[in-house]
Design a protein around this nucleic acid. Sequence first.
DNA 1: GTCTATAAAGCGATAGAC
DNA 2: GTCTATCGCTTTATAGAC
Lengths: 204, 204
Amino acid sequence: MKDRRKAILEAAARVIARRGVRGLRVEELAAEARVSKALVYYHFEDRAGLLRHTLEFIGDRAERYTRRDPAGRPHEPVSPLRELERRLLLELQDAPEVRENSTAWGELRASAVFDPELREELAQAGLDWVREIADLLGRAGPTVPDAALVASAERLTALLEGLSTRWLIGLLPLRHARELMREAIAVELERLELPDRPAVCTVR
Amino acid sequence: MKDRRKAILEAAARVIARRGVRGLRVEELAAEARVSKALVYYHFEDRAGLLRHTLEFIGDRAERYTRRDPAGRPHEPVSPLRELERRLLLELQDAPEVRENSTAWGELRASAVFDPELREELAQAGLDWVREIADLLGRAGPTVPDAALVASAERLTALLEGLSTRWLIGLLPLRHARELMREAIAVELERLELPDRPAVCTVR
DNA sequence: GTCTATAAAGCGATAGAC
DNA sequence: GTCTATCGCTTTATAGAC
């Protein structure tokens, strides 16, 4: 009951989803968590510290829903291609937690354009993310040169980021964004000549 | 010489490219334009009005370099596919004006996630943009159903936005971003069965 | 139209009581 | 640990002279 610290982090995640990292005001956050401003400073030193811990909190939550099933257990191993699709569609869901995560990551990317300090951490995360997708593609088609896998992974992840932003803006219904993502995966697989899955529905 | 109004708008575009929409301070902008703060308010009412006019200004500039050659004349008509490629690669250039525009549009999209007021204008521009790309695809392959053209256009434009952000963050060298975009175009054309252009280099 | 000076508001951060 | 009250800087916006 008295874990106010966690309540503050959860509230921070909600406020970031509503106002953005740059729009987060300590006062609004305190109100959201139903605590005083001073308590926020007591637990997190200053605004920057609060932000650090909140982003870590959000990252941990993402980790959880990335690698575990809804009940919290590591999810069943599936084929590399299924896993690939699962991973890429994970960010396109309307659950509050996921939406908060997508929003925060989008903001982080957007902020990094103007804040060199953010770039380093983001660069590492971005590379890891591309690498994971490339590996999943590689496990499905072991004879494809690595450079081609990486190029496909880069396109897929960049597309995901673009679609995610458009979804969050309200420019693209979630269903449609997911559909576009699925088709893009299929198109890339065709290009890599790994059509051991339902072929892309042909256009005409 | 005394068109300070225009000088302010140009300065605003530069400051937005440097600090972002949300990082723009009227004081910094005034210094950049070498005018007093008060003059900014005289010409543009308030910060929101300044932002509106600046974004309009940036949009007009983009319009100009989208439809005209460097000398300012409407550029030579080319084949739909060449035009398609030209349009999609236009935003991925290192010229200061283009970089400013890309940065500003990226910020606009990112800000719109948290600001419903920005969405309307952005929504219209986004729809027009998809429509134009879809039309160019359609002119190249008149028998393809419209829904498929739109889907391809949506993927290509969303990808462009993702790549552009990654470029501006410094996560993707410009050359590489352009290469990924070109390949994506080729892949989509193959999918639409419009391979009347150099085929995608096969992977293995 | 353009400036200098200043008011007014917003917001991060701290002091001190309980 | 948690609160109320307040300080001080930053930033938007206005008043009034030229």
